[in-house]
């Protein structure tokens, strides 16, 4: 593997040309059409098991795009992203199962809860140095997981089961194919949202703060507010993923929101290329489909993955498909 990395390295030109071809605005609409067609046609082709895996990959596209706002756009290392995912899933779980809410009504509550969680973790800590922030987010992720494991209302270690399936116009949403299409639609929405955010005033402020915090502040950008906005945006993406994750499985438990989960999402962002939306999507597919393809090597696959992450950081630190600005 190491040799492979080294040999491909001297010729980045070819890879870059390929990416440039995808970035070309003239080809863009054709590319979008191909991607939408592939998304629509995938379930019958890949079969039931493949559909479930692809659904999971699409969930990770949403989560990775959300974390990318925090890490890639604003340059803040968040090691507890699974906490926001958990907040979304548990809010929906608790409200539908214990308070008899309609599924769709829980979404605004979940988003508010995630935003509040983003403010709680971000508010006091965003003034800290970046490495302190990383460890505080890690601690926060653990607090949420331990809380979910021990609180009565979250069902403790066994979690919540029997979360009712949502329905639209009397039609109940169940089955892997239905959820595949739901997640595909959400992922497309997430891509559009991330793209719009990146090119907004706020998006430019994020890039500026990441690039040079002091200069950004000197130009009148309120860095704490801008960073907080990144946190809240990331939290909202995570919560949406969590809400539909809960609806899809009908059951959630603390194991789904561990530190490993946060790391997996972070890996998707870094593998693909921090800040680069197509790169992050690619990264999400790699972290989910990669282990499936490597299933034969069993317990070694996580090790292989960790080594790949290390090699990427050493030889291609801006990811497989890096942004032009970085």
């Amino acid at each position: 593997m190491a040799t492979n990395k080294v040999t491909t390295r001297p010729a980045p030109g070819a890879i870059e040309r390929l990416y440039a071809a995808f970035d070309d605005p003239r080809r863009r609409w054709a590319l979008y059409a191909v991607i939408i067609a592939l998304l629509l046609l995938a379930p019958p082709v890949v079969g039931r098991y493949g559909t479930v895996i692809l659904t999971n990959a699409l969930l990770y596209v949403i989560l990775a795009l959300g974390l990318n706002v925090v890490v890639g756009f604003a340059g803040l290392l968040d090691l507890g992203y699974a906490a926001f995912f958990a907040v979304g899933a548990y809010t929906t779980g608790i409200l539908t199962q214990q308070f008899g809410f309609n599924f769709w009504l829980t979404i605004p509550f979940a988003l508010c809860a995630a935003a509040i969680a983003g403010v709680i973790i971000g508010g006091p800590t965003l003034r800290l140095r970046s490495d302190y922030l990383a460890i505080v987010t890690l601690g926060f992720g653990e607090i949420v997981r331990i809380g979910a494991r021990n609180l009565e209302i979250t069902g403790q270690a066994s979690g919540l089961t029997g979360i009712p399936s949502p329905s639209v116009f009397g039609y109940t949403l169940t089955g892997p194919t239905t959820y595949y299409y739901i997640f595909a639609a959400l992922a497309v929405l997430a891509v559009i949202a991330a793209q719009r955010l990146l090119h907004s005033r706020l998006g430019r402020a994020w890039l500026y703060v990441r690039h040079d915090e002091d200069a950004a502040e000197a130009m009148g950008i309120n860095r704490v507010r801008v960073k907080l906005a990144a946190y809240i945006t990331g939290a909202v993406f995570g919560a949406i993923g969590g809400v539909f994750f809960a609806a899809n499985l009908g059951a959630i438990s603390p194991q789904s929101f561990s530190f490993q989960q946060s790391v997996l999402v972070l890996m998707a962002v870094i593998l693909g290329g921090m800040g680069k939306i197509p790169g992050v999507i690619l990264g999400a597919f790699i972290v989910i489909l990669g282990p499936e393809l490597l299933r034969d090597i069993g317990s070694l696959r996580l090790l292989v993955f960790a080594v790949i992450l290390l090699l990427i950081m050493l030889f291609r630190p801006s990811g497989i498909w890096p942004g032009r600005r970085s």
Binding site: S130, D131, L266, L303, A306, M313, L314
Partner: peptide, 28 residues
């Protein structure tokens, strides 16, 4: 060592990657 001049975020993630390598090597 190769990362000392890289942005802080990169070296933090490298440290995280080293942690994962050690952990998963022991796991395997």
């Amino acid at each position: 060592r190769p990362m000392l001049s890289a942005p802080r975020l990169s070296i933090l993630i490298t440290a995280l990657a080293v942690s994962l390598v050690l952990q998963n090597a022991a796991l395997a």
